[in-house]
Design a protein around this nucleic acid. Sequence first.
DNA 1: CAAAATATTGTTAGCGCTAACATTTTAGCG
DNA 2: CGCTAAAATGTTAGCGCTAACAATATTTTG
Lengths: 342, 342
Amino acid sequence: MSKVKLQDIADKAGVSMMTVSRVMNNDPKVGAKTREKVSKIAKEMQYKPNIAARHLASSKSFFIGLVCDYANSSYVNKFLVGGLRKCRTTGYHIILDETTGDRDKTLATIKDLIEVTKVNGVILLPPVSNIPEVVDLLESANVDFVRIAPDINLTASPYICIDDYQAAFDVTEQLILNGHSRIAHIIGSPNQGASRMRYQGYLDALRSNQKMVPPEYIEQGDFTYKSGLDAAKRLLELPNKPDAIFAANDEMAAAVVSVAHMKHLDVPEDVSIVGFDDTQLATTIWPNLSTVTQPLEKMAELAIDIFTSPKKNKTFKVSNMRHVLEYKVQLRDSSKNNVKIT
Amino acid sequence: MSKVKLQDIADKAGVSMMTVSRVMNNDPKVGAKTREKVSKIAKEMQYKPNIAARHLASSKSFFIGLVCDYANSSYVNKFLVGGLRKCRTTGYHIILDETTGDRDKTLATIKDLIEVTKVNGVILLPPVSNIPEVVDLLESANVDFVRIAPDINLTASPYICIDDYQAAFDVTEQLILNGHSRIAHIIGSPNQGASRMRYQGYLDALRSNQKMVPPEYIEQGDFTYKSGLDAAKRLLELPNKPDAIFAANDEMAAAVVSVAHMKHLDVPEDVSIVGFDDTQLATTIWPNLSTVTQPLEKMAELAIDIFTSPKKNKTFKVSNMRHVLEYKVQLRDSSKNNVKIT
DNA sequence: CAAAATATTGTTAGCGCTAACATTTTAGCG
DNA sequence: CGCTAAAATGTTAGCGCTAACAATATTTTG
């Protein structure tokens, strides 16, 4: 058991405990020589800081609340694992908070997160990132928070997202380039900005390529496999059925693949299918899903970085507010991919 | 922000801080009247204990290390979410630890878990639960640990599992009852006891029903989708191909479904497929997987309970060592299910 | 070269809680 | 009732670390 404490190092190095503390925390006000000597000794003695003591003395908790609506989705899972990995190296800890719908309970649970767990910061995953009351609560409690793919009140907190509109535009255009003209779309949850953005990107890509969108090609889903199943059934029973379906996430796209199989349609020969997110699921079904890769793990890391990094005057720098990460259109086997851009 | 501390309650109740502390920790040595009065006041004042202070004073960390080899599997995900849920209500925290293969690195990372993070306990998921060096390390460091589905050194720690043998026996028998006689099996990772148990259960079910198992019906997988793909391809290209395939987990079963689709085989008409675990994946593909439901969430909760519950003389009670939970054979659409037990 | 400005290091005082022991109260019993 | 055992409560002393300020060394500057 490591019982090396600051004092031990201080004694060995012939300096005060405080100096050692400063070295450990990268405080700039330490002489170069001292710093080097101290950190060498610390390493030799295998010093490991005591998180609890640090927390108690500094009133920082090193806890980060991760609020989502339902933790069992492949989206949340991917984000979660990324976050947990980052935690492992930073000494932070994630408290998972599932809010399952009820608005009041959501608020209560977040309040609890702040008061009991004394989280250092809160990460809001969609759709919670778009609940005004939650944003208000966090603001008035003066708790730092980062939102993923928010849609409202964009100046309230730093946020991380990808360009959902452009990504949807790109996949749709890719579909067109590959020879599709009857492209349907399954919209995501209506309470998420990303759903709207993706829908709009899809629409605009078609429009800018002079393609018609019959209204029956637009289905409303809610990001669940189940909703994708229903939507896909309607879509693939249409008299003039689409030759490509773009679902707003992988789970719904997987459902479309399922329905295609049920109806003995060949994917992608009879119908191309693309998803969105590139979660584990995309490569655990056949055919592997063409999709948009969201760097969810990186987003999780970045979110935690934002809490970790020192802030100017108790508030976030404006330049740190907005993080739009790169996505990647990932073409796999569920969409026709033979026709190249001419 | 709750700033109510023990002293505040003590003042209000006219008792000492220590008495309040005892009430908060359910120490039996407090008079009934006092206990009631104090807890009433604490509730009124919305007292929330400071975890860090408690940790520092008691040298308990309230952290639990969860060690797995690869966090992105649906198995780990399901367990993780269950654990995180439990944590939310107990004030414990999970530190996720991925060990990705390398034996030395595994040991180093667990050592770090003990020394730096000062975890209160460690949960070992398979296959890590079966690495002798890890068990030794934990034992010699005198850290409490719980193993999930261990195979070796069963007295070293409490463990939680299901009866893999019987479950495999049951599904296989179910397959036979449903009219199958050419039943193949894809074995899981060779370094996991559960793989052996499931394999044996499968074998014995066939034997006790006087069914032959041609050697080419046995494929070695490693619990990954990829390995399932390879195995399924070989199986379904056999001249005398099986009419049912029992894969040792859902991921590999999903792969079998994929290959069946590739080969335009109808599931379950041409080939019945069953998996094991009942992870999210089982109901996110078509047809939904017949499988064995493992209560992974419950297992996670139980594991944490074991750390939480008070222990006799610094060690686990023998009666608490072994927890065999109930499984359930979950018949869905990927297996023929029309023939009932006669 | 001394005074002032700056950089570096040290001192003091807790953070909020609990273990361990000390003390008081209550119960038990002849 | 007095006296002891047991139960209930209180006191003391930190856990290991860091803020805030104090003190000292070093540099800069007129």
